[in-house]
């Protein structure tokens, strides 16, 4: 009975990988600098058992063998060859974000969306956030300090990297404007009624 249960858990783990995991992996490959860490990020998705060993090995054979990793597909070949290629990773992240959140992708750069998604936990949790919370996402340290000392709260978190915010004379007001639009478009992305909207190049007009 125990072996049956173990194989059932392995099946459940294998089936639970989705697009969000790909986005998290693509973002982490983009920001990490050391080559060892990049390979560890790859293994965490495609062959987690290799991390138990002293000398983890990233190869197609170990991915095909793995019981807990993401199932093998033809894209993996290209991904392994270009793990350290930064330009390829950035293009891949943009393409993934466009299919996952088409409306949000028109408003914000792909890296900011990836940061927001990872911090919130999932697209569902991002869609259910208030826009004032979305505005200060990523500035938790400053927010908690301000709450303790009863001083002014921060005006922008991850949204500070947006070019519109940086170039405007009033960055706080601009961040508030963008956060309002972003929270609406995140909700449209999550509650998409059918697949036609997600594949259209223009998305929904706000």
């Amino acid at each position: 009975m125990r072996e049956k249960q173990i194989s059932l858990v392995e099946k459940e783990i294998k089936g639970s990988y989705n697009l969000f995991d790909d986005i998290r992996l693509a973002y982490k490959l983009l920001i990490t600098e050391s080559k060892k860490e990049r390979i560890k990020h790859m293994l965490r998705v495609y062959a987690p058992e290799e991390l138990y060993k002293d000398k983890p090995d990233l190869s197609i054979q170990s991915i095909k063998k793995s019981k807990l990793g993401k199932p093998y597909s033809k894209e993996v070949n290209e991904l392994i060859n270009k793990v350290h290629d930064q330009i390829f990773q950035k293009e891949r992240l943009c393409a993934l974000i466009k299919t996952y959140t088409p409306n949000l992708a028109r408003l914000l750069p792909a890296e900011i969306i990836a940061q927001l998604l990872i911090k919130a936990g999932s697209l569902r949790q991002l869609a259910f956030l208030t826009s004032s919370k979305l505005q200060v996402l990523g500035a938790e340290k400053a927010l908690n300090l301000a709450k303790q000392k009863e001083t002014n709260t921060p005006k922008h978190g991850y949204l500070y990297a947006h070019p519109k915010v940086q170039n405007s004379p009033e960055p706080g007001k601009q961040a508030k404007k963008i956060a309002n639009q972003a929270s609406i478009s995140a909700r449209i992305d999550y509650f998409r009624p059918n697949e036609e909207l997600s594949t259209s190049p223009e998305g929904l007009s706000l």
Binding site: Q5, V9, S16, Y52
Partner: peptide, 22 residues
């Protein structure tokens, strides 16, 4: 949690008195 269970599976393969449930 799936990610926590993946780390726990190392122990499950080593000891025969643990049964995992996701």
């Amino acid at each position: 949690s799936r990610d926590m269970m993946i780390k726990c599976m190392k122990l499950v393969y080593l000891r025969d008195n643990i049964t995992p449930f996701l």
